[in-house]
Amino acid sequence: MKKTYIRPLDLRHGSVDLSHGGGGRAMVQLIGEVFGRAFDNEWLRRGDDGAVLPAPAPGERLVMATDAHVVSPLFFPGGDIGCLCVHGTINDVAVMGARPLYLAASFILEEGFPLAELARIVASMAAAAKAAGVPVVTGDTKVVERGKGDGIFITTTGLGALPAGRELSGANARPGDTVIVSGTLGDHGMAIMARRENLAFESEIRSDTAALHGLVAAALAAVPQTRVLRDPTRGGLAATLNEIAQQSGVGIVLDEAAIPVDPQVAAACEFLGLDPLNIANEGKLVAICPADAADALVAALRAHPLGARAARIGEVIADEHRFVQMKTAFGGRRMVDWLAGEQLPRIC
């Protein structure tokens, strides 16, 4: 019998078509040549429908988190949707206090999406997963007709192990606690906006997208009594702190002068009429801990490359109305509220 020849995918000029999601040989080929090759590990090599994973150590519990990623543009200064979808899910697991172990990834591809871009995104995902030491052990791919998707959507799910006795939750903040951030705010959202049509401006702003489990481990090793960890993604610091205030039934008072913001992000905010506290981050932590541990926590964060600009930015107060307030650098007070609706540049 003649040996079957399958022409390799044209990763330079080719594009996704419906057959790549159709369950036939083309799909197998795409999975093998693009995903399998990049993510290569013992689980994927088996080619089964799911990954068989070892049970966690006795006493440990599992933490699971999932995140759907739609971002425009797909490639932006400092990253792309590939590394972003790995970091985002690792961070959701990490801020629960868990050690991220495995990822699952599902892809919705739009017919016509260039294979070169897909390969680039997958390579970026694989590199991010490898650097983080968290393998992608299972996945799925679907293709939708042209016009029914925005190029590529990626959903990642993460599994992590939570050591016995560790309880981190947004409901744990207590009056008197200190609020800390691990670095400058608004970098990711502004890096994206800089590339949007019509808004385009030039700057050196880069997304802060990063896997935070190392930073989390360092923080929790130094201050195990840390009460809350969160990554302030969509809606920025303002949304995250309002969530925590709601969950914990407390108020928060911030000190504006202490909040780190990159000068270029601040300037871009002036151009667009936006507030850095509402803008997304993908590589920052918000931590709340008892006041007497705050110095140790800030020191532990600063000792890590991803927390070099960590700062204490406020305190938790008793407030039945659960307001987040801020002492302005100008000398007054105001509320820091959730963003109303979609964030749109203002002219007035």
Binding site: A200, F201, E202, S203, E204, I205, P263, Q264, A266, A267, A268, E270, F271
Partner: peptide, 16 residues
């Protein structure tokens, strides 16, 4: 200053 009544301006390191 650019042709056609355009210019590049700068604020805090951001250019437009």
């Amino acid at each position: 200053l650019l042709p056609d009544g355009q210019a590049v301006v700068e604020l805090g390191g951001v250019r437009k």
